[in-house]
Amino acid sequence: MTLPFILNGEDVVARVRSGDRLSEVLRESFKLLGVHSDCRCGRCGRCLVLLDGKLVPSCIVPAFRVRGREIVTIEGYAQTNEYQDLVAGFKAAGIETCGFCDSGKMLAAGALLERRARPMPQEILEQLSAVPCRCTDAEALVKAVQAAADFRARRHFSRGH
């Protein structure tokens, strides 16, 4: 089937089979290798993308579900100011995430900050449970996301003045 959708801000069309997993389509048709497809059951957090702004495991999204919808992968998100806020926040908290989980954690934290400008520690941990990698302790992750929220708020404030 022919599948038109928006990928990282651009209108694209893919030729897919209806049962193809979105993670596979992103990797194979678009060479977006920041999306992985390891567990294929939505648990490992390596395939996370934003679907219409919401964090979803792309390995359990069949391609047909994204017709006409907007997908952002880590490659697209990394071009945004919001991503830079998160990088600064993680650096301020002294975190160096591992290569296994960094893209998932960035997208998960970014999606949360879109909904909650100042998330509570419990909300942060709940959101980041979508990426069950244990490379970073919970307290540091909370600090990193809160620091990123501060960077984002400062940027919005300075842009408004």
Partner: peptide, 25 residues
């Protein structure tokens, strides 16, 4: 009838998912 589909896809491990002949989103 396909809405969230989390159960349908979680139970299959292949590169692509086996779906019946007709799917309604």
């Amino acid at each position: 009838l396909y809405a969230g589909g989390t159960e349908i896809l979680r139970e299959q491990g292949g590169r692509a998912v086996e779906l019946p002949e007709t799917v309604i989103s």
